[in-house]
Design a binder for these strands. Structure first.
Length: 853
RNA sequence: GCGGGCGUGGCGGAAUUGGUAGACGCAAGGGACUUAAAAUCCCUCGAUCUUUGAUCGUGCCGGUUCGAGCCCGGCCGCCCGCACCA
């Protein structure tokens, strides 16, 4: 008796695939297909989220390969980033060493999953062979005007002497030091993603193999709004005040203007106005967290300036500096119409400004309509508005813009919420920005011949701040332009920079001259199927879309969109456990005892909490390595794919894993221990089959058809349900006549082939057990015989007044009269009719008969 | 506040997109095998009742339809994204 021994089987077949070069990318085949999963950050160990992500991708890759596609399925490492620096500081290990060791560990772990990856194409973004190309890209962007430098605000930790990302600022304090975070102004590099705002928005419509949800999130993020820029005269001053508004139709309801605390005009005025300067400082102190914004009161400071109304030159309105006006959006200045904007209303009530309604809600009387403290933002007819009176909001907007343009007091304008991408990070473990700062020449690009600018590895982390800044020699260079004394840029790129083009590098991973050739990009891009977490719905995907367009503009490639198909997987969740003191416990420390749960060692009661995303902080994690060691990779993979649809969250349960294990053991046992019930390989189909054998044959074809469709549509959980149903029928077949022996072989072989994308090792083993000398990985995907998919008879439900009363067997496509006759003949139907004649009979062929009594 | 999604047995989820609700699995209960256990195999498994059958049942209320888990209107609940974006 041969027991199912996954560790033996799995290492054997991984070795065989390796030796045969089974997953080597075919550069010549005429059906290229690029499957890509988001590459991992080398944190040290793989987690269940990786297992799910890479299993999903591997099912697609193996399925497509079997269907005859030349599949590109690579893997690499998103290897720059903050955790490496944290490890350096905490454990005194160099980020490079830490990262490379983590990569080695995780590569080994990933390999045990049996993924059909071409490891010859592996890339690690922290290596100069990779990042030298993005330095070149950056310089090309600079030449094209797609990169530029300007001052920008950052979160500064005064103790660590470092810049903090927004998520490292907790309650206004540095996450590590607890010191109050300061706002600092630094010169930083930006990529001009806003040059593509409209394109990035409109091209979303063409991404029809992306989830609607992700497209919507990107749409909102880009945030297009149509409106007008108004240029208000400021009596006593030469310049005008520019305000953006989506509602120029409400101009007659205006009662003030407000400008941002960091508006240039504010900065000028506060120079000789200490009270204003103090107000601005107060605004800057105010955090930007959700909670603060939610509860913050609208506050303003009267500048003493006024603006003149464009349509009513005799009317002037006060200009305030207001804490709720953002410099980053529009022009950093607004006109306030309290009646039709809640923020303006709050502000007007606080400072006693006038509230003039100019949009009349339907059914209201203009003579009596007033507003309390709620602004009216709906549709209606304009009134109190001179030439706009009677118009709808939409017509009013157009008419107001026309008038503003004729008065040269404004113009129609489209504004986007999207802002340029700041790529400078004051960090060590990242790609050096290839710029040299010269006192006389300014920021000078490093010449191509001097690339790459290598990140020096002889650094220490004993001083706070960026080690590049303290490096004794690296920084000091001569200016490439004038030869004078100069310094290197010590900032490095945001790590989203590396992940914005890695998918293209895989097309040509060993090219030392270029990031990739146009030809390789033309062959493989865009990625046919990209798979990853929803958490990257906006930034990573948007940056990659931008990068692809920027690269196209610089002549690198000819596509605009990097990812033709996108699938976003759900999270892997697990119950949470806490002991009596409230401390989190690992699942391995907990034993379930019916409804109760107790500590494995002490027997003390354990509180079971709701299921949440697996996370180290809550300890509700299960280590994939443990699962692979005790059940094998195929069981882990099968469980990942069973039950939960891939786009929904998956609940990890021990019993579910056991169920997957039981199923695989059963398949193994049933096929490996089959004693003589199988026809030899290549036996022709017998001329006639018994009913049972014919039914099994038909089911086999139906299963091929169903599983194929399910895999194509990412319904992996249904594919597995179908396979289980199929195997239940198959293993229950009795008899050893020629027909049974033939159909059993046909069924068993089909089963192993259909399971191969999900459980590749076991399938390969069984393929061999069934007597094949070739490897299953090289076999073509089975194709169903279409004539076998239709039954001769169908079971049709019979309803009386919509309620099911019977089912009848009918010949396929049987005529309506016959169906009606047979339906009415049913005893239960007659009883339900209770002697009444049917008023009407609806017959839907092959579906249902409904009798209306 | 704005935008989006989802509510189906004890649980995860199926349901050819308007046509037999609950596939497949998990858990539970019963039985067989065994000295015993594990493993395995078989049976039951939405609720209620007057149990060869009937009634109810897809968050709640209503509508359209011969027929609604699916479509429409209104509620309730949960989840996600954005958030002073003018």
């Amino acid at each position: 008796m041969t027991r199912y021994n996954p560790s033996e089987i799995e290492s054997k077949w991984r070795g065989a695939w390796d030796a045969a070069g089974s997953f080597h990318t075919d550069e010549d085949g005429d059906k290229p297909f690029y499957v890509l999963e988001m590459f991992p950050y080398p944190s040290g160990r793989i987690h269940m989220g990786h297992v799910r992500n890479y299993t999903l991708g591997d099912v697609v890759a193996r399925f497509k390969r079997a269907q005859g596609f030349s599949v590109l399925h690579p893997m690499g490492w998103d290897a720059f980033g903050l955790p490496a620096e944290n490890a350096a500081i905490e454990n005194k290990v160099h980020p490079a060493k830490w990262t490379r060791e983590n990569i080695a560990t995780m590569r080994d772990q990933l390999k045990t999953l049996g993924l059909s990856i071409d490891w010859d194409r592996e890339v690690a973004t922290c290596e100069p062979e990779y990042y030298k190309h993005e330095q070149k890209m950056f310089l090309d962007f600079l030449r094209e005007g797609l990169a530029y430098r300007r001052e920008s605000w950052v979160n500064w930790d005064p103790v660590d002497q470092t810049v903090l990302a927004n998520e490292q600022v907790i309650d206004g304090k540095g996450w590590r030091t607890g010191a109050p975070v300061e706002k600092r102004r630094l010169s930083q590099w930006f990529l001009k993603i806003t040059a593509f705002s409209e394109e990035l928005l409109s091209a979303l419509d063409s991404l029809d193999r992306w989830p609607d949800k992700v497209r919507l999130m990107q749409r909102n993020w880009i945030g297009r709004s149509e409106g007008a820029v108004l240029r208000f005269e400021i009596p006593g001053r030469a310049e005008r005040l520019e305000c953006f508004s989506t509602r120029p139709d409400t101009l007659y309801g205006m009662s003030f203007c407000a400008i941002a605390p960091n508006h240039p005009l504010t900065e000028e005025l506060s120079k000789d106005n200490p009270a204003l300067a103090e107000f601005v400082a107060e605004c800057n102190r105010m955090g930007t967290s959700e909670e603060v914004i939610e509860t913050a009161e609208k506050k303003g400071f009267d500048t003493g300036l006024t603006v003149r109304h464009p349509f009513m030159p005799d009317r002037e309105f006060k200009v305030f500096v207001a804490n709720f006006v953002l410099m980053e959006y529009g022009t950093g200045a607004i006109f306030g119409c309290p009646a039709h904007d809640q923020r303006d209303m709050d502000f007007a009530r606080k400072y006693g400004l006038s509230v003039t309604p100019v949009v009349l809600p339907p059914g209201e009387d203009p003579a009596t309509f007033t507003l309390a403290d709620e602004a009216y933002t709906g549709e209606g007819a304009l009134f109190n508005s001179d030439f706009l009176d009677g118009m709808s909001v939409t017509d009013g907007i157009r008419a107001a813009i026309d008038r503003l343009e004729s008065l040269e007091a404004g113009t129609g304008r489209v504004t986007y919420r999207l802002r340029d991408w700041g790529v400078s990070r004051q960090r060590y473990w990242g790609c050096p920005i290839p710029i040299i700062h010269c006192l006389s020449c300014g920021a000078v690009p490093v010449p191509d011949s001097d690339l790459p600018v290598k990140l020096p590895e002889d650094v220490t982390f004993d001083k706070p701040g960026n080690p590049l800044f303290h490096h004794p020699t690296w920084k000091n260079v001569s200016c490439p332009s004038c030869g004078g004394k100069a310094e290197r840029e010590t900032d490095t790129f945001d790590t989203f920079f590396e992940s914005s083009w890695y998918f293209a590098r895989y097309a040509d991973p060993h090219n030392a001259e270029k990031g990739f050739t146009r030809e390789s990009a033309a062959r493989w891009l865009p990625v046919d199927q990209y798979i990853g977490g929803i958490e990257h719905a906006i930034l990573h995907l948007l940056y990659s879309r931008f990068f692809t367009r920027a690269l196209k503009q610089c002549g690198y490639l000819d596509v605009e969109e990097p990812f033709a198909g996108l699938f976003t997987q759900g999270m892997v969740c697990h119950e949470t456990y806490r002991d009596e003191k409230g401390a989190w416990l690992f699942p391995s420390q907990v034993r379930r005892d019916g409804d109760a749960a107790v500590h494995v060692d002490t027997g003390a009661p354990v509180t079971v909490g709701r299921s949440e995303k697996m996370s180290k902080s809550r300890k509700n994690v299960v280590d994939p390595v443990d699962i692979v060691n005790s059940y094998g990779a195929d069981t882990a993979r099968l469980f990942m794919l069973s039950d939960s649809p891939p786009d929904r969250d998956l609940e990890w349960t021990e019993s579910g894993v056991e169920g997957a294990w039981r199923f695989l053991s059963r398949v193994h046992r049933s096929i490996a221990e089959d004693d003589g019930g199988l026809a030899p390989i290549g036996t022709a189909r017998p001329g006639s089959l018994s009913d049972a054998a014919a039914e099994a044959e038909r089911l086999t074809h139906k299963t091929i058809d169903g599983v194929t469709q399910d895999l194509e549509r990412f319904h992996f959980n249904r594919a597995i349900a179908r396979i289980r149903e199929f195997s239940n029928a198959l293993f229950g077949l009795k008899g050893d006549g020629d027909d049974m022996r033939w159909v059993r072989r046909f069924g068993f072989e089909t089963l192993t082939r259909l399971m191969a994308p999900m459980t590749p090792h076991l399938s390969e083993e069984l393929w061999s057990t069934l007597g094949h000398e070739t490897m299953l990985v090289d076999e073509a995907w089975p194709v169903a015989d279409a004539t076998m998919l239709v039954e001769d008879t169908v079971t049709v439900g019979v309803q009386v007044n919509g309620k099911l009363r019977a089912t009848i067997e009918l010949p396929r496509d049987c005529d309506k009269a016959k169906a009606e006759e047979l339906a009415l003949a049913e005893e239960n139907v007659q009883r339900a009719l209770d002697g009444n004649a049917p008023k009407k009979v609806i017959v839907v062929p092959n579906r249902i008969v409904n009798i209306v009594a």
